Amino acid sequence: MPTRVDNKPSTTKRMLWMIGGVLLLIAVIAGIKVLLVMRMIHSMPQPAPATVSTTTVREQPWQPALNAVGTLRAAQGAELAMDASGLVTAVPLKSGQDVKQGQLLLQLRDGDEAAKLQQLQATARLSELTFERARKQLAAQAISQAEYDRAAAELKANQAAVAQQQVVVAKKQLRAPFAGRAGIITTSPGDYVSAGTTVVTLQQLDPLFVDFNVPQSELGRLQVGQPLHLSLDAYAGRQFDGKLTAISPKVDLGTRNVQVEASVPNHDKALSPGMFARLAVDVGQRQPRLTLPQAAIVYNPYGDTVYVVHPSKGKDAQGHPLPPTVQQTFVTVGETRGDQVAILKGITAGTEVVTSGQVKLKNDAPIKVDNRVQPADAAHPTPQEH
């Protein structure tokens, strides 16, 4: 007959039952919490679609160009100075005046030199008359050959003295060596000018040269005669056209750049030597290219991408159309011009891509398109004042 002690559960079984019950209770509580969290998540309002602007990829004519910066230089330019010292008696030049070649710009006192020139000219005239008389007498055999030679030598000597004195007188005058525009002149009559002191600057303004440097790797794309286009901050919206005139035969050992020269017509004298200019040299033939605003490209170390817009598909629980979504796509970009960039691979013409708001996007993210404000997309942008 079993005893009362034998009918009681063992201590081990009781512990197992207790542990099982605790685990079951924990599981029930955890399940309730999970259900509550899921219900809260489902009851939370869905995030609104990100607002972005978009544009359509289009094909445009594209002129390959080599971009550089350069400095304008006068075809002829000089700092004019006097060859001789003296007192200024006349300044017929005005600051900023356009002058012709040989025009008198400044006069020094030359009374003594001019008087001596007149004396030498009179002596030379007398020698000329004496020589003519000697020539006729020699023909009539009235004088010897020695007397004739002496008269001829005297004439040449006097003529040389006149020429020498004319040079001395000319040194008292400052004349324009070429046609151009004068700079600011501060010299006035009564001033004393020393030899070698710069009096005024003279610059030939039409045409102008522009000097710039290109990497040696671009030499194969350049040749004399290629057209180029200049833009300057001083003339927003205006383009100046020119052509390549010379390419240096030497590569700079320090920079590995090559100096290039171009000529730019300047009929209206709008450009000035020393101005900074941005330029684009036309290289190669014009060809069609897919273009996008540069703002549409997301530049990453692992590759450049764009967000392609996919139209909405289906409807939500309330029957409203779902918003469009985006998909990140890798692209290969080419040259840039102004605000535009050429797309070589990755997308086709007519594809709609995001142009702003990409920082808020990821794959399959819903979007709301608002194109009231568009990023810059000009091939030749100009500075704007706001």
Rank of each mutant, 00 (worst) to 15 (best):
R4K: 14
K8W: 00
K8H: 01
P9M: 12
M15C: 11
L16D: 01
V22A: 12
L23T: 13
L25C: 13
I26F: 15
I26K: 09
A30I: 10
G31V: 00
K33A: 14
M44E: 06
Q46C: 02
Q46G: 02
A50P: 07
A50M: 14
S53F: 11
V57L: 09
E59N: 11
L66I: 08
A78D: 15
V88M: 08
V88Q: 10
D98K: 15
Q101Y: 00
Q103E: 09
E113S: 12
A114P: 00
A115N: 11
A115C: 02
Q121P: 03
A122T: 12
R125Y: 13
L126A: 09
L126F: 07
L126P: 03
S127Y: 03
F131K: 15
L138C: 06
L138E: 10
E147M: 04
E154D: 14
A157P: 03
A161E: 08
V162D: 05
Q164C: 00
Q166I: 00
V168K: 12
K171A: 11
F178H: 03
P189A: 06
S194Q: 14
G196M: 08
Q204K: 03
Q204G: 01
L205P: 00
P207C: 02
V214Q: 07
P215N: 04
L219S: 01
R221E: 13
L222M: 12
V224A: 12
G225P: 09
H229N: 07
L230E: 00
A234E: 12
D241Y: 08
D241C: 08
K250Q: 11
V251F: 02
D252W: 01
D252M: 00
N257F: 02
N257W: 00
Q259W: 04
A262P: 11
S263V: 12
S263E: 15
V264M: 04
D268E: 02
V281G: 01
R286S: 12
R289N: 04
Q294D: 05
P301N: 11
T305H: 10
V306P: 02
V306N: 07
V309H: 03
H310R: 10
A317F: 10
H320E: 11
P321E: 06
T329N: 01
F330Y: 15
G334Q: 00
A342W: 09
K345S: 05
T348F: 01
A349H: 04
A349E: 09
G350N: 07
G350C: 10
V354C: 04
V354F: 03
S356R: 13
K362W: 08
D364T: 13
N371H: 06
P375A: 10
D377M: 07
A379V: 02
P381L: 01
P381Y: 00
P381E: 06
Q384N: 11
Q384S: 14
E385D: 10
